[in-house]
Each structure stands twice: as C-alpha cells, then as structure tokens.
Nucleic acid binder design. Structure first.
Length: 155
DNA sequence: GCCAACGTTGGC
DNA sequence: GCCAACGTTGGC
C-alpha cells in the first residue's frame, strides 16, 4: 500500500521548520479538531509524506517537506494541565486526541506561496487554498505533493 | 436536536 | 488589527 500525502500547518513563531530540523523528530501534538484527529488516529501512517506550511505569518506558504516516522498514538499533552491545549475530558484510559511523529525532509530555499500555487492546474484545488479552511492538517494528492516539491526545489 | 452566541483561525 | 469563516458550546 502506497503512502499518503498531507499538508501540516504551523505558525513559524510556534514551531518552525528550523525547529524540526534541530529537534530531529517532532511529536505533532495539540490537535483539537475531530476531523484532523480521525486522520491522525486512522489515516496518517509511518512513511507518509508531508508538506510543511507556514500560516499566520508574513510570507505564507510551503517551506519544505517532512516524513511521518510514527503512526498515531494518544496525545498525552491533553491531560497535562500545564500544556498549551489541555483537555480534561481526555484521559490515559480514554484518550480523545492523537498525534504522530514527523522528521524534516528537504528545506526549500524560498517559500512556495498560495499565489504561486493557485495558477498551477494541479494545485488550484488544494484543500488548504480553499477559502475558510481552518484544518491544521489537510490531505494532498500525490500529484499536488510532487508539483509543489518541484516548485520548491526550483527556487 | 436546533440554533444563537462565542471563541479561534488565518488571510489580508 | 480587522473581519469572514466556521467549529464548539450551551440553553431550550
């Protein structure tokens, strides 16, 4: 079974691509949205490929690639009152939220921006580019992934 | 189970 | 900093 392709959003002030490079492996915790939780628990698997997207920043867009290196498992920050996103309804016995582990892939020399992506036929339909999209992880097709990487590496 | 109010996200 | 979009909460 071939791996899948995803786009992970991050605000660079919260967690940058450079942080990921420095950390080696990152636990992608803190997701508190049920649709994304389902993907983390059921769909996002070791070996899947990731586009790393910066939101809420000066230059918005995709800055590099990453790889999933660990299947979904319970997000233990949910029952840590000191964490960024505590949720007392989630417990070790009955976890609600899930996370995966990722590692950095290639860093693009420059950000691939939405304005550059929209005119490209294969990319125009990407979920992340839809108005009002607020999902912190969105699926991308293999073609979308490959076209973005080609654009990124050409920079 | 509906839906208004509220809080958050994220592009501009 | 504004505001549209939209997920979640809570009263009924």
């Amino acid at each position: 079974m071939a791996g899948k392709y995803w786009l992970f959003k991050s605000e660079p002030t919260a967690y940058s691509f450079e942080d990921l490079v420095k950390d080696g492996t990152a636990e992608w915790d803190g997701v508190r949205n049920f649709q994304v939780r389902n993907w983390l628990r059921d769909e996002i698997k070791t070996g899947d490929q990731v586009l790393f997207y910066y939101s809420n920043t000066k230059v918005i867009g995709i800055v590099g690639t990453a790889t999933v290196v660990g299947d979904g498992y319970p997000d233990n920050t949910a029952w840590d009152p000191g964490s960024e996103h505590p949720d007392p309804k989630s417990t070790p016995e009955n976890p609600i939220w899930y996370m995966v582990d990722i590692q950095a892939g290639q860093r693009f020399a420059d950000t691939v921006t939405p304005d550059e992506m929209r005119p490209v036929a294969e990319l125009g339909e990407m979920v992340v580019l839809k108005k009002g999209n607020r999902l912190s992880i969105t699926p991308v097709t293999q073609e979308e992934f490959e076209v973005v990487v080609k654009l990124g590496l050409a920079k």
